[in-house]
Design a protein around this nucleic acid. Structure first.
Lengths: 208, 208
DNA sequence: TTCATAAGGTAAATATTACTAACCCACACC
DNA sequence: GGTGTGGGTTAGTAATATTTACCTTATGAA
């Protein structure tokens, strides 16, 4: 399957170089601070204080304050990609894969809210995100969904008269909207219930 | 219909006070600048220069730089609410209303991209948006959708075993995701085609 | 042994930027 | 005829992201 290959390729680059302690401390500090406030309200001074290093060190390891954000997001994404790779293993049928993927997606947002906040709120508000390497990771994940959908069309599990890209957007849009409210209002997110309902609606809409 | 009432109430507050020229110039300036770059990259100096007033005047009329953003958003929202009010007039049936509303929603994003940018990207990235008066407007609009859905449940047009709030989120999520990519990549947005496909999928999912 | 070079980290300065305090002017209205 | 008051400006100020130059240790090649 091409899909697993792609995610595998991602996972491969994971264990390359051990980051220097300062870099780790800075990334940790940002993650911690993001639990309390939004990115723009976090100052470099605060980050360095929390990390126990000097402000200038941030700029040794990161081009920007935003580059720091992107790299932290990147780490989350890589973890999530290997996770999905495992989750999808051994599942037969496009709709079954889709259901599992939707569950995993909602579940990771429910579990790791900082990840969700960065991806859903902070990243998109600056154009350079869409030119970053990090965004390429998202595209790979996004392609995986597309491939599942195309597999479904071939298997006659999914109708072929609506562009797969649009179906993907509707799926992603639904997931993200549902989670976004949970995230911003600090409400619980129930992956099982949400997956159930989302699939119930969308699957009825996309079966032939 | 309660729905029209609510939107009417909004429209009523529209023609209250004529804004002083400086205030208008500042709001215009921000709208113009938002076509070119994102909010955080726009400086108060830039806004005042573009408006032909001094920087301090911004703070006579607006609490914050973000308050300026919220008020500009507010103006867009009010306009959109009266527009929807007209669009929905005389349409019978929940699904028909829903289709029209989806079209109007997509269409306004397609037409006025600055509005879309603010609402979809800039506003959500700061928590105080959710405590602002502007957000109350969004909630009113959001309630209108809910009422249409509930009407549909009563008419047996829409299934009753999935929470209306969730259906609303899926509808809004789909619309926003679809438009968001169009906005961020400056691609064309085709309201007719998108409405057609979105309704085709979601309606199949929500009919009994 | 020695010397270069690089990696990890710091101290101190700087240019921008959002925001404020104090002031000016004109016109309406008792 | 003063007296606000609405619309506007001048001239700051404190924070903040980012830069420049520097220090220290350790590795490794000659």
């Amino acid at each position: 399957m091409e899909m697993s290959d792609k995610l595998n390729a991602l996972g491969a680059g994971l264990k390359s170089k051990p980051f220097p302690p300062g870099r780790v401390k800075i990334a940790d500090a940002l993650r911690l601070l993001l639990e309390q406030k939004e990115f723009n309200a976090i100052t470099t001074a605060e980050i360095s204080r929390q990390a126990g290093v000097t402000e200038a060190l941030i700029y040794k390891y990161f081009k920007d304050k935003r580059d720091l954000l992107h790299q932290v997001l990147s780490e989350y994404l890589e973890q999530y990609c290997v996770l999905v790779q495992g989750d999808l293993k051994g599942i037969k049928g496009a709709l079954n894969k889709l259901r599992k993927l939707i569950w995993s997606h909602i579940n990771v947002y429910a579990t790791s809210r900082v990840f969700a906040k960065i991806l859903l709120i902070e990243a998109r508000s600056h154009n350079d995100y869409y030119h970053s390497d990090t965004y390429e990771l998202v595209k790979v994940y996004s392609d995986v969904i597309l491939e599942i959908l195309e597999e479904g069309v071939l298997n006659r599990e999914i109708r072929d008269d609506i562009p797969a890209q649009l179906i993907r957007q509707i799926i992603l849009g639904s997931i993200e909207q549902v989670c976004l409210t949970g995230i911003t209002f600090d409400r619980a997110i129930d992956p099982d219930a949400l997956t159930e309902d989302i699939c119930e609606i969308i699957f009825n809409g996309i079966i032939p």
